[in-house]
Design a protein around this nucleic acid. Structure first.
Length: 392
DNA sequence: TCTGGGGTCCTAGGACCC
DNA sequence: TCTGGGGTCCTAGGACCC
């Protein structure tokens, strides 16, 4: 039996939650993201803000230039969004047997076989939207198609509050006029390569032989692009998968040259990563240092540990060694951070409790703020900015 | 315009082993 | 003394996604 995949995408999720919770912000341009005047980008903007040409990932400085004075700017409240997300995923779980969350505001559902129970795909989609609206008071866009690619493009096609079902016989006509970036795995670089070959749309890609695409993009990407342009893509929906790495990084408000600041920031990152790993009952074998130098040059250095660890000090020591071993001494640092990956096969719970926890107290958000405040107090002008998470 | 943070996956060279 | 081919691990970087 042909598979039927549904993709659900909340509309302007972060700003929608904020406008729901703050009636005074409804109907106004609203930005969730970096603070104006600081380094950073727009995470999500309300539809009122999009009318001014603002979009996610735009530098906040550019957004400020474009938006009127009545615009509201807020920092992300991730704990709140995660809470709403959990409720949405719970509701989705009551509608279909397999739910695959792909991010805080997106999920795939396998709705094959729901036809006999619920009705045609349009009815399944309408019920899903209604259930989300009833549970959390937010609108979602829903797309249904024969595979993940088509379902996702279908949910994008009618945003906001959209609903589109694309049947197998409609797939080619639906795909052909789409821009190259509609295909999964085609970003700025791959799109540019294809444009240089005179291709503009998915239909153009479909008209080219597989061999040419493989030659231009490499065997793997070329094949994927070829298959997708013909409407062929993964139609499986899996339950949530395990994460492969944990990382913490921060961009400084001003570039930093003082190695004491870098060391303290790495220590903070190691505490966060170590805590999250222990909380997940995991030990990692690879520590990766990430550093972004002035003006915007990113490097990573990694090291395999002698033994798997979730110990703040072990993680910090490895990262600090990597930092000192490198030759960027004296250069201004824009960002620094670290990650832990390469999980040990069978983490032993009791071992994890023996790991050294160098945090001062509770793992709550205020502890992180306290740590950052301490760094700010000590190194006044090097204000560390809290992170944010980009959402469309 | 001046570019966040948290991730995944792929590639490719070199080391090392058989 | 000069030389295979394959497999796996480690490391660095990059493209991409949300």
């Amino acid at each position: 039996m042909p598979r039927l995949v549904m993709h659900i995408d909340l509309d302007a999720f972060y700003t929608a939650v904020e406008q729901r919770d703050h009636p005074a912000w409804r109907g106004r341009p609203l930005i969730v993201g970096a603070a104006p005047g600081r380094r950073g980008v727009v995470a999500t903007c309300s539809y009122e803000a999009r009318r001014f040409g603002v979009h996610s990932a735009m530098p906040i400085s550019e957004a400020v230039r474009r938006l009127p004075a009545e615009t509201v700017y807020v920092r992300p409240n991730m704990a709140r969004y995660a809470e709403v997300s959990r409720e949405i995923m719970r509701v989705l779980g009551t509608l279909a047997p397999v739910v695959e969350p792909v991010s805080i505001d997106e999920a795939y559902l396998d709705v094959s076989g729901l036809e006999r129970l619920v009705g045609p795909p349009e009815v399944v989609a309408r019920r899903t939207k209604a259930a989300i609206r009833e549970a959390v008071g937010l609108t979602a866009s829903v797309g249904i198609g024969p595979n993940r690619l088509i379902a996702k493009l279908a949910s994008d096609a009618r945003k906001p509050d959209g609903l589109l079902v694309v049947r197998p016989e409609e797939v080619r006509a639906f795909l052909d006029p789409m821009p190259l970036a509609a295909l999964r795995g085609v970003g700025a670089v791959t799109a540019r390569r294809l444009e240089q070959a005179g291709l503009r749309t998915v239909g153009d890609v479909r008209s080219r032989p597989l061999e040419e695409l493989r030659r231009r993009l490499g065997a793997r990407t070329g094949t994927q692009v070829h298959l997708q342009s013909n409407g062929i893509a993964d139609d499986r929906v899996h339950p949530a998968t395990e994460r492969q790495s944990i990382s913490k990084e921060t961009t400084f408000a001003e570039d930093v040259e003082d190695s004491d600041v870098l060391r303290d920031t790495l220590r903070w990152a190691a505490q966060e990563v170590g805590y999250l790993a222990r909380h997940d009952a995991r030990k990692g074998t690879v520590v990766t240092l990430k550093i972004r130098l002035h003006p915007f040059e990113t490097h990573t250095r990694s090291r395999t540990l002698a033994a798997p660890s979730a110990d703040d000090r072990v993680i910090f020591d490895a990262a600090w060694d990597l930092y000192r071993a490198d030759t960027h001494a004296g250069r201004a640092v824009r960002l620094i951070g670290l990650g832990l990956s390469g999980w040990a096969q069978a983490p032993v719970q009791s071992d994890l409790f023996a790991e050294i926890d160098t945090r001062e107290q509770d793992p709550a958000d205020d502890r992180l703020d306290a740590t950052l405040d301490a760094i700010r107090r000590r190194f006044g002008r090097h204000c560390i900015q809290r992170g944010l998470s980009r959402r469309p």
